[in-house]
């Protein structure tokens, strides 16, 4: 009798060294100082956060650095209710697009300190940072965003960012 092999397990392990590039390096250094640094497109004047070094619409370097605020407006969001590999946070949690004050593109982040069913489009939020000692050149320097005690931004103010 020949038994058919239906499956074999072949583990693959490859190691890579990732390098963020100039623009992202500047951004990460900023986070280590508790600042959020964007870059301005020289053609459109729009501020990109996090910057990737290129104006995606014009293919030119974004060189002018612009510091943006750590407050912003939730443009849209979803409530994640299923667990996912590589995510340490237990569901449900809120993943949101946040238009930081001074930026022209929404920033992807988590929202806490607010019941998830009370998160809404237009809600004003502020970054919660790790302690000064823990600040490092990594996205984890911002733990999450929490609600601000401010009136919601009107839909028209962020409509073009959806």
């Amino acid at each position: 009798m020949t038994e058919i092999v239906k499956s074999i397990t072949t583990p693959i392990r490859l190691e890579y060294v990732y390098r963020p590039g100039r623009a992202t390096s500047r951004f990460l250094r900023g986070l280590a100082e508790g600042r959020i640094l964007g870059q301005r497109c020289p053609v459109t004047g729009k501020v990109y956060v996090p910057p990737r070094g290129a104006s995606p619409t014009h293919g030119v370097p974004t060189e002018e650095e612009v510091e943006v605020r750590d407050t912003g407006t939730v443009t849209t969001f979803c409530i994640v209710r299923i667990p996912s590999e590589g995510l340490s946070i237990p569901p449900p949690f809120v993943a949101a697009h946040i238009l930081l004050d001074g930026a022209d593109i929404p920033f992807f982040a988590l929202i806490h300190e607010c019941p998830f069913d009370q998160v809404r489009m237009g809600m004003r939020v502020k970054a919660v940072w790790v302690s000064k000692e823990e600040l490092a050149p990594t996205f984890e320097s911002i733990r999450y965003f929490k609600p601000l005690d401010e009136p919601d931004a009107p839909f028209e103010s962020y409509r073009e960012h959806l």
Partner: peptide, 12 residues
């Protein structure tokens, strides 16, 4: 959802 050290996690 490969975690690149300096990129934001793609959520779920």
């Amino acid at each position: 959802t490969v975690r690149i050290p300096f990129q934001q996690a793609v959520v779920a």
